[in-house]
Design a protein around this nucleic acid. Structure first.
Length: 423
RNA sequence: GGAGAGAUGGGUGAGUGGCUGAAACCAGCAGUUUGCUAAACUGCCGUACCCGUAAGGGUACCGAGGGUUCGAAUCCCUCUCUCUCCGCCA
């Protein structure tokens, strides 16, 4: 959520940012927020004054009662009636105005960092770098959805029976390589100084609001109606919400957490071409890194996180590229996002496997996540990144490493898998 | 699921209608002093919003929401959570 005082003092900057993010009704929305906010403040001033008068009168009455001046006290009581009804009115309109400000404010996305390129869609994203050699496969190379059948390691039909489309069953070496990847990713994060956490994978409304999934992305999450809990779309949500309503003491910074969780996404309306096999699932596994940083350090941290993720891809011997997302393609809550894509040799396309973002104060403002600087509380910056999401990593390992003798497991994973080839 | 008890500031914990934004103690911060890796003493020590260039002032908050009252941490209602006992159970 954007900070109201910031919008007030930086209206033009706000508008420019929102337009870069391709917000359709930016002028209108900002104007509305500022007008409502002014009304809100006026109303609060008036209410506070009325309440101050009421408090003074109440004290007066108390004193009169004590000194036995009953009649004077009764007379004073009569005077409070008007103040009371007035304060009630004002309180109601204050509440209404606060709600209205909030309603518009939550529709505004985060402002993009100055380095974010202009653009409308994925085609406008900036390729920051490309690394690794794309393998050249023979004509008989298979896409991963055929390889998983050939080697009987992932079963989509079985998943359909148990749950539905997009919920695959991993079997044998398929299950073992999943477990290997998770452990590999967690171990690497531990080496890099992250604290491992195992959060719940169901979250309440407040948590959904804290990281920005609610109110506007309600339809993307599975919802357990009996208990009003959402299945997490990413570990970002529970891990970042660990720090909701927290004033972190300076010596605990920076916070670096890593967690493995399954992730659940309804992906309503996003099925079609290019989503075969492991390319898009309703349930998948992911290791997520989350950092909480002082504002002045957050962009340096973002670069570190990007390099960290790239290091993982290098160790897995996967050709990858890094994109800086353009204003129109960025997430709602992000100020700057790098996407990491790996080359999927049989499909001949790039697959997104990680998204590393700095949210600046946007989430922290919702979370009320702060620290103290010289006695004053100040919002912190939150960042997170996939490190990494499994399915597409697995897809490209399967495709890129296929040989007539079977699928070669990347060296770093062999100790974790306990086998060198899937055949 | 059934029965009972409870929820106060970073922690412990007092407070049952006005003198309480809240005692006391601990932790923390600043300083004074003592010749010793510590003690004693003094002061400070919650959050948010509003007015103000500032100094400063106002308002709200004692699990959450509502109500009674001139006045609520304190009384009433609803909800949430925690603990204890019983039941069930990985």
């Amino acid at each position: 959520m954007l900070q109201l005082p910031f919008i007030r003092e930086n209206k033009e900057l706000t508008l420019a940012g929102l337009k870069k993010k391709r917000v359709a009704n930016a002028d209108e929305a900002v104007e509305q927020v500022l007008t409502l906010d002014q009304q809100r403040r006026d109303t609060q001033k008036e209410l506070d004054d009325v309440l101050a008068q009421s408090n003074a009168k109440a004290k007066e009455i108390g004193a009169l009662m004590k000194s036995g001046q009953k009649e004077a006290a009764e007379a004073a009581k009569a005077e409070t009636a008007e103040l009371k009804s007035r304060s009630k009115e004002l309180e109601e309109s204050l509440k209404a105005l606060e709600q209205q400000v909030m309603d518009v404010l939550v529709t505004l996305p985060n402002l993009p960092h100055s380095s974010v390129p202009e653009g409308r869609s994925a085609e406008d994203n900036e390729v920051v770098l490309e690394n690794g050699d794309k393998p050249v496969l023979g004509d008989d190379a298979l896409p991963h959805w055929d390889l998983i059948k050939k080697y009987n390691i992932i079963d989509f039909e079985l998943g359909i029976k148990i749950t539905g489309a997009g919920f695959p069953v991993y079997k044998g070496k398929g299950a073992r390589i999943q477990r290997a990847l998770i452990n590999f990713f967690l171990d690497k994060a531990l080496e890099a100084g992250y604290l491992e956490v195992q959060p719940p994978i169901l979250i309440n409304k407040d948590s959904g609001f804290g990281t920005g999934q609610l109110p506007d992305k309600e339809g993307q999450m599975y919802f357990a109606t009996a208990d009003e809990l959402y299945l997490i779309p990413t570990a970002e949500v529970p891990i970042t919400n660990l720090y909701r309503d927290v004033i972190v003491s300076e010596d605990q910074l920076p916070v670096k957490n890593v967690g493995y969780t399954p992730c659940f996404r309804r992906e309503a309306g996003s099925w079609g071409a290019h989503v075969r096999g492991l390319n898009r699932l309703h349930q998948f596994d992911k290791v997520e890194i989350v950092q909480i940083r002082k504002p002045e350090e957050s962009y340096q941290a973002l670069e570190e996180m990007s390099l960290y993720v790239q290091g993982l891809l290098q160790e897995l011997e996967l050709p990858y590229r890094v994109l800086r997302l353009c204003g129109g393609d960025m997430g709602f809550t992000s100020a700057l996002t790098y996407d990491m894509e790996v080359w999927s040799a049989a499909q001949q396309r790039w697959l997104e496997v990680s998204s590393v973002s700095n949210f600046e104060t946007y989430q922290a403002n919702r979370l009320k996540l702060r620290y103290k600087v010289e006695g004053k509380t100040q919002l912190l910056h939150t960042l997170n990144g996939s490190a990494l999401a499994l399915p597409r990593i697995l897809a490209s390992i399967l495709e890129n490493n296929q040989t007539p003798e079977g699928i070669r497991i990347p060296k770093v994973l062999v100790p974790y898998c306990g086998f060198e080839v899937i055949n």
